[in-house]
């Protein structure tokens, strides 16, 4: 520090302690509620000190929320989003920065138009589209009277029914959340900072574009990929609206959705203790990621800028 100023330092500590407390208070009460019995948690007002049911409630929440299954689903979905988005974005960013081709600008804009349009905005049509992704093809078939045509050719009366129903499937949960340009944008920005000499040298050596991509560009991108992966993992794990609408099968629900099932509704037992235990369980994996991989997480945040 430039000068000593104990009072200001104390004020700063006070501010930070206040900030940390603000973060912790909701979590503390979740813990308190999660450690009470169902009768205690209904007391008005709620006790301020924890009870002794914490581990029992955790266990109950784990089984009631079907968490052994839903955690696995969350992991699959979060990793699927992470891996899918990184792979897809690396490839497309490579294409638009390292190749000169006719439709480059068009491709660029097609991708970047989606940059800031989260799925929430187009949730209804996306739901329909994914409930039967083959619907556009079906309409095409209907418009072109393909069935009649085929019927005329073959002499049979034919109905063409195209179907691609992704409700309650992992692709259905993952793919729509990959459909945005954020990661592509990040990699593009990064590729633009990679020294041109590397590419020139590779070309002199007669390396193919894919070889250059694989053996030079990709290793250089690893730090960015790791950082981004953390952000995407959190993004995937914490998804709410899409899996909420999209997983009607209990066995395909994610942990956050299973947690929602634990929240008491008006016609069920007000088991807030179980709900709060479930909340603590569900936030544990992402919290661990933030705590343990903090440096990468911060880098990811700042890199992805979104």
């Amino acid at each position: 520090m430039v000068e000593r100023s104990p009072i200001l330092n104390m004020v700063c500590h006070a501010i930070l302690i206040a900030g940390a407390l603000t973060v912790c208070v909701p979590l503390y009460f979740a813990f308190v509620a999660g450690s009470l019995t169902v009768t205690e948690v209904q007391k008005v007002p709620l006790p301020w000190l924890p009870g002794n049911q914490f581990f029992d409630n955790l266990q109950l929440a784990w089984s009631k929320g079907n968490f052994s299954r839903t955690f696995a689903n969350s992991i699959v979905v979060a990793l699927g989003i992470t891996a899918g988005k990184i792979v897809v974005s690396l490839l497309s960013a490579f294409a638009i920065t390292y190749f000169r081709f006719r439709y480059r600008m068009l491709a660029f804009w097609l991708i970047f138009v989606s940059l800031m349009l989260p799925i929430e905005v187009r949730i209804v049509p996306t739901f329909e589209a994914v409930a039967n992704a083959a619907l556009p093809l079906q309409s095409l078939a209907d418009i072109l009277h393909l069935a009649d045509l085929w019927g005329w050719i073959s002499g049979h009366d034919v109905a063409i029914t195209l179907e691609w129903n992704m409700v309650n499937t992992y692709p259905g949960l993952i793919l729509p959340l990959i459909a945005s340009a954020t990661a592509t944008f990040l990699f593009r920005q990064f590729f633009l900072t990679v020294p041109d000499e590397l590419c020139e040298a590779a070309k002199l050596d007669g390396a193919s574009p894919l070889h250059f991509f694989w053996s030079i560009l990709l290793p250089l991108s690893v730090p960015n990929m790791v950082a981004l992966a953390i952000i995407l993992f959190l993004f995937g794990w914490n998804q709410y609206l899409w899996p909420l609408l999209f997983t009607t099968d209990k066995d395909m629900a994610t942990a956050v959705i299973a947690l929602k099932g634990l929240i008491p509704r008006s016609d069920s037992e007000p088991a807030w203790n179980i709900a709060m235990s479930g909340a603590l369980l569900t936030m544990l994996p992402p919290a661990l990621v933030v705590l343990l991989l903090q440096r990468w997480f911060i880098k990811g945040l700042i890199d992805s800028s979104k």
Partner: peptide, 24 residues
């Protein structure tokens, strides 16, 4: 937005690379 050092023309490979994202 194009690298000075690039792999030049020809739409084949870049199209292939862009395809997954564009399809999604």
């Amino acid at each position: 937005g194009l690298k000075r050092a690039n792999f030049g023309d020809g739409p084949g490979l870049p199209t292939l690379l862009l395809l997954p994202q564009l399809l999604i």
